[in-house]
């Protein structure tokens, strides 16, 4: 319910036996009202201003590179700052590949947790599950990166080696699961998966919570098991929203910087071998920015622009999908 129309209460009107000014407040108070409204509006507009400024200022700084490289900035994979060559394709590839690995790992787990917390868990366990996910989300990404580079990468290297030995002759698998580097696309994907699981879980949970109880009861009433109820009532209802949640997770994975910079191996290459080192847009920016100057710096900011545009596109589409569910939940 929206607030009642305030004007009815505050608009000047003729009151028998007086002008009503005592009731309606002084003129300064009325000015206070419109002032407050404007201040609040300005605060809200800061969001739009910041987004516009991000697009404008970063594009402006990166312009020399965009002008020089043109489309080859995103279609060439030759990135040699010393020779003035800036082709970011290998980084774009690394960003996409590591994020996709993260999604493949995180989506089934996130959905499982969301369904468990909303549908299957005993009542007293539901809150703790949510609580643990909150803590998981609260751990700073640099800490995951630290753990990834000092603990996970060395520990997982022999695992990669044995997998790559085992499936080496199998056509597709041997091609994908190839390489022996602890710091690799795969390690980055694993760390990213841990980081985006809480996001996908909490958004999926919100969507699943909008499933009307009547649908569940109807399914149970027809004699469905819990799984059949989930498949026939919960999932069809929330499919769109879950897709949105997954896309938001994708957006987060693509923009994640520090953890990826530490574990991806910082070696730009386009390869399907998941156990080999690569590099991502965000990781390159943070690793090279310190020693970059001139065009090189402009090129790194240009990578930021590409990243910004991609994540905005992903987020806008995801939010449109999730937004539909939001409205449905509020019964509008």
């Amino acid at each position: 319910m929206a607030s009642p129309p305030v004007d009815e209460l505050t608009a000047p009107r003729v009151v028998p036996g007086g002008d009503g000014s005592a009731l309606l407040g002084s003129g300064s108070s009325r000015r206070g009202d419109s002032l407050f409204r404007w201040v609040a509006l300005l605060a809200g507009l800061v969001v739009l201003a910041v987004l516009a400024l991000i697009a404008w200022s970063t594009t402006k700084e990166a312009w020399p590179v965009f002008r020089e490289e043109g489309l080859s900035f995103v279609t060439s994979d030759t990135w040699i700052p010393a020779e003035g060559k800036y082709g970011a394709l290998a980084f774009i590839y690394g960003t996409i590949l590591s994020s996709l690995i993260a999604l493949v790992l995180a989506v089934p787990v996130s959905l499982g947790i969301a369904l468990y917390a909303n549908e299957a868990a005993p009542r007293r366990l539901r809150k703790p599950v949510v609580y643990v996910m909150d803590l998981l989300a609260a751990i700073p990404s640099v800490v995951y990166g630290l753990w990834g580079v000092l603990v996970l990468a060395p520990a997982i290297q022999p695992v990669y080696r044995s997998i790559s030995d085992a499936v080496g002759d199998v056509p597709v698998l041997g091609w994908l699961f190839n390489g022996t580097s602890g710091r690799s696309f795969m390690t980055a994907g694993i760390i990213l998966a841990v980081m985006i699981t809480p996001i996908i879980t909490s958004l999926s949970r919100e969507v699943i919570a909008t499933v009307p109880p009547a649908q569940r009861e109807a399914a149970y009433g027809m004699g469905a098991t819990r799984w059949e109820m989930i498949r026939s009532a919960v999932l069809p209802w929330s499919r769109g929203g879950i897709v949105g949640a997954v896309m938001l997770g994708l957006g987060r994975a693509m923009g994640e910087t520090i953890a990826v910079a530490l574990v991806i191996g910082s070696q730009a290459q386009i390869t399907a071998h998941l156990f080999e080192p690569g590099d991502s847009m965000a990781a390159v920016i943070v690793n090279q920015f310190g020693e970059a100057a001139g065009t090189h710096r402009a090129a790194l900011i240009g990578l930021g622009v590409v990243l910004f545009v991609v994540t905005i596109v992903v987020n806008v589409s995801a939010r449109s999908i999730v937004g539909r569910f939001d409205r449905r939940m509020r019964g509008a």
């Binding site: 987004l51 991000i54 970063t58 920016i285 910004f308």
Partner: peptide
């Protein structure tokens, strides 16, 4: 809507900005 989108802007992009 834009506030929601803004939560998705990568933190590195904020740094560059």
């Amino acid at each position: 809507f834009m506030a929601d989108v803004m939560t998705g802007v990568p933190s590195i992009v904020m740094g560059l900005f």
